Simulated scan of single mutants.
Amino acid sequence: MKYGLLENGIDSLKQAYTCIEKLEAGLHEGVEHNLKDAILSLNHAIEILFKMILKNEKEYLIFSDIGKYMIAKNQMIKQGKQNVFEVGHDLKTVSLIEGVKRLELLCDISIPDILKGAIDDFNKTRNKLMHYELELSGDEVNLTIRNLKGFYGEAVSFLGKHVEDIEKLLDRARYEYSDEDYQSDMYEHYMDMQYDDHRENHYD
């Protein structure tokens, strides 16, 4: 199993989409947890996928302290490790807001103002959820849901320029195939084969 930046980010992006769809459907119950999950998942997805873009430019760009990264990278090479986190246990990656700055100023990647505004607004909302509390009126909930939908659309539009086949990846994300489903499909396949053999023998 590999759970890299791409897989991690796409998974959260799909989770955000699923929650936004539920919210748009007009839930009578479950608004609170779906709104929370949508906000946290969308922020997480963008942070992780922005880090992936930074890493694709230069790995060191995702680390807040490049000096510590260099020390860890040196130790990683000496010890024959595969990942800097195996030796640099105190390494920290950049925040979402810092990631935005590095993409624009160090990678010359332009981020639309409307997306940057949404990132800033929802990052503040996310921080309230993560570190304190969030209170919204009914009208504010409806506005937040509409803004989330717009935020998601802007994010996917931007990420689509940097993540190959993002729509296909989202379609496949969070697909679940249980043992029971597998056994059921195999049984149907076996029965189809039996039926085909019976027809061939009948018409021979």
Rank of each mutant, 00 (worst) to 15 (best):
V84R: 01
H162G: 00
A173K: 05
K81W: 03
L49I: 09
A38G: 01
Q183H: 12
D165N: 15
S178G: 09
Q183G: 05
E57N: 09
D171Q: 12
K92Q: 14
D196N: 13
E29K: 07
A72I: 02
H202Y: 13
G150M: 08
Y187V: 05
I114W: 12
L115N: 01
E133S: 12
N123E: 01
Y69P: 07
G117A: 09
A25P: 06
R174E: 14
G138K: 13
A155N: 05
T18S: 11
H198W: 13
K55R: 07
I48W: 07
S157D: 14
I119T: 05
K168N: 14
K22P: 02
I48A: 06
A38W: 05
K14E: 09
Y60D: 10
L159H: 02
E140I: 04
G30N: 00
H189A: 15
H189P: 10
K128M: 05
V31W: 05
H198E: 15
G99V: 05
H189N: 15
N142C: 13
Q79G: 00
Q79I: 02
V31H: 01
K36A: 01
Q183R: 12
S41Q: 04
E154R: 11
E32H: 08
E7P: 14
I20V: 06
V84W: 05
S41L: 03
L54T: 03
I166V: 03
M191Q: 15
Y177W: 10
Y17I: 07
K78H: 06
K78M: 10
E29I: 12
Q183E: 14
Q15L: 15
G160M: 06
A38N: 06
D165P: 08
V94I: 13
M70Y: 13
K22E: 06
H28E: 14
R199M: 14
L5T: 07
N56E: 10
H28M: 12
K116M: 09
G80F: 04
N8Q: 08
L159D: 01
N74M: 09
V156F: 06
